[in-house]
Amino acid sequence: MSWVILVLSGILEAVWATALGKSEGFTRLWPSIIFAVGLVASMGGLSWAMRDISIGTAYAVWVGIGVALTVGYAMITGAEPFSIVRLLLLLGLVGCVVGLKLAGHD
């Protein structure tokens, strides 16, 4: 169950990071609210998952998921430039996150 919570928390990291960018310095209400709720839920889930998963593995997986989804979303929406190299690097990051799960002893 800890791994499920960790993955969901990583997804929420992408939500709050994207909302933070759209909040325009916390001047827009709904992105600011989504940021705050997403941040609290994401950190809470990370904290809960770290009861069973080592801190290094949990943090790396959480950040990896958040980064991959945030950049992927930005490339899909056109906020970030798309290139095959960037896509391959994101896939490599995802591969490393999966590798941490498979190689770990948690």
Results as ranks from 00 to 15, higher is better:
L8W: 05
A17G: 06
E13Y: 09
V4Q: 05
G78Y: 04
G66S: 07
S47G: 13
W62T: 01
V4D: 07
F82L: 10
A79G: 05
G64F: 08
S83F: 12
Y73H: 11
G38H: 03
T18K: 01
A49G: 09
G64D: 04
L89P: 00
A19G: 06
V67Y: 10
M1L: 13
L6V: 03
L93W: 07
Y73D: 10
D52Q: 11
E80S: 13
W48S: 08
V67G: 09
R51C: 08
P31Q: 14
A41R: 00
T18S: 09
I76E: 02
S2W: 06
H105D: 07
L91W: 03
V4C: 05
S2R: 08
V40C: 11
F26N: 11
F35L: 11
G38N: 05
V98Q: 06
I84G: 07
G99A: 15
I84R: 14
V15E: 00
G99I: 11
V85D: 05
G10D: 06
G21F: 09
A60D: 10
V4A: 14
E24G: 10
V37Q: 02
I76V: 14
K22Y: 13
V15Y: 00
T70D: 06
E13V: 12
R28E: 13
F82D: 06
V67L: 15
S54D: 14
L87E: 01
I55M: 14
F26K: 10
T27E: 15
L29K: 10
I65Q: 01
A103Y: 11
A68E: 01
V37I: 15
G10R: 00
L39I: 08
I84C: 10
A41P: 03
G21H: 08
G99K: 05
G72K: 00
